[in-house]
């Protein structure tokens, strides 16, 4: 049996969490290599399309990491991310994707300890959920689509 190594896509705000990941590196702390980081200008920039596209392209989990409430460089981009995530999780549930596959959290530039911890937690969580298999995009006579 092959071990399931999940793919986690992380959208990290360049003002805080991304700095935190850098700080982890400088402090020679390691976090699981399952995380593929995409730097964004603000967690509020994360369009729900980005999250869905990540799942479609093979992510088993998605993290959005922004600045703590009250510390957003653009005042309330992180609160927008919070509002968007609240509804997106509900939608994911309807689409058969467990809510825990999407995690929004706050990481300040110096909090590399927290970053290492929550990425580890996310990897464990997604490992326990198993690989995500979306509905196939194909179809038709020339594909191996299930038929009845």
């Amino acid at each position: 049996m092959t071990v399931f190594e999940p793919r986690i896509v992380g959208f990290l705000c360049g003002w805080c969490a991304y700095e935190g990941a850098d700080a982890a590196g400088r402090a020679r702390k390691t976090y699981p290599a399952h995380l593929r980081i995409v730097r964004v200008l603000c967690s509020g920039r994360v369009d729900p399309q980005f999250v869905l596209e990540a799942f479609r392209q093979g992510a088993d989990g998605v993290m959005i990491l922004g600045c703590h409430p009250g510390e957003c460089h653009y005042k309330e981009g992180n609160l927008q991310a919070l509002k968007m995530t609240a509804i997106l999780k509900k939608l994911l549930g309807q689409c058969g994707i467990q809510e825990e596959r999407l995690r929004l959290d706050w990481v300040a530039a110096g909090e590399y300890g927290k970053l290492v911890k929550i990425v580890g937690e996310m990897v464990e969580k997604v490992k326990s959920l198993g690989p995500l298999r979306l509905r196939e995009d194909g179809g038709g006579i020339n594909s191996a689509l299930t038929r009845h």
Partner: peptide, 20 residues
């Protein structure tokens, strides 16, 4: 939310519908 946002476009959406 699913039925509302995708009333006309679920089949063309990124997720295509409910995962297996």
């Amino acid at each position: 939310p699913g039925g509302l946002f995708y009333q006309f476009s679920l089949a063309a959406s990124l997720l295509k519908g409910k995962a297996d």
